[in-house]
Design a protein around this nucleic acid. Structure first.
Lengths: 149, 149
DNA sequence: GTGTTTGCAAAGTGTTTGCAATTTA
DNA sequence: TAAATTGCAAACACTTTGCAAACAC
């Protein structure tokens, strides 16, 4: 019997399974669910805890450790990437291409910033003997308190 | 009796005490020592653990919790600032002015990048209703493996 | 003396690991 | 059936907290 989270429509489960297969991951019930939650609504950013809560709300039984393990498997497979949030918490991001982030303080929420939107042509040369692995830009935001004239 | 870490010369202790007073912090033995370790060698970046080890190496008795508490007091006083490292660990930085960082993977080391060295004039406008609190740029480095043609 | 600061040990977060039981192919 | 995956609980690393004892002024 194919792994089929009861919480998912056949079509949703099918899509999720296909995605997993594309990344050489066995479509277990837990992976199908988590993959669906991650990808069904377009690009998104979650912490393990957020996803765990969604999974529980869906009624599917699974454990926090499985969420972590599964997300790390997704990362290793190249399906998603990780990102360190300002609070030192690990975020998981469905967009794997190079890009940056807004982080909304108070709302605990990430928003993508396309790589092209930040001009990094002016970053300084690394010290001799070192090469640049990557550049992480996080723009911290807060709700604008009534700055309307 | 004035707090005088045995590990410090009178002059060093005096400088450290003066700095603490300038920030309205009582110059206790522990604070004098930690302040000295932080500032005596020019701008630097440390984790609580690094500083704790230095403090221990100096022979002065003090406890990890005191290192954390003291560093947070320094932050609150405006003497230093915090910075989240790529590994999710908290770093303490003697440079409080706006600036960015190189992080050297493998060496677990931070290097300052002056704010002016990164052109942020091109960052995208925040979504309507939000204002920019700050921009954190971390440029991850690795030792260049023999790329010398 | 009085209020501040420290040591200590304990609790707290967020994350990872080891292993037996279950599930997939 | 053989290999991969999960649940569970325990361990883990880092950081914070509560309170009595020690200290600065």
């Amino acid at each position: 019997m194919l792994a089929a989270p009861a919480a998912l429509s056949t079509a949703d489960a099918c899509h999720a399974r296909r995605r997993l297969r594309a990344f050489d991951l066995r479509p277990t019930r837990q992976r199908v669910l988590l993959s669906h939650l991650m990808f069904a609504g377009g690009p998104r950013h979650v912490t393990a805890e957020m996803l765990f809560e969604e999974a529980q709300a869906s009624g599917e039984p699974l454990v926090m450790a499985t969420v972590y393990n599964t997300l790390h498997q997704f990362v290793e497979a190249g399906m998603i990437r990780t990102l360190m949030g300002p609070g030192g918490r690990l975020w998981f991001d469905t967009t794997t291409a190079d890009h940056h982030h807004f982080f909304v303080e108070g709302e605990n929420r990430m928003i993508d910033v396309p790589a092209g939107a930040v001009d990094l042509s002016a970053i300084p040369a690394p010290p001799a003997g070192y090469r640049v692995l990557g550049v992480d830009v996080v723009i911290r935001l807060a709700p604008a308190q009534d700055s309307s004239a």
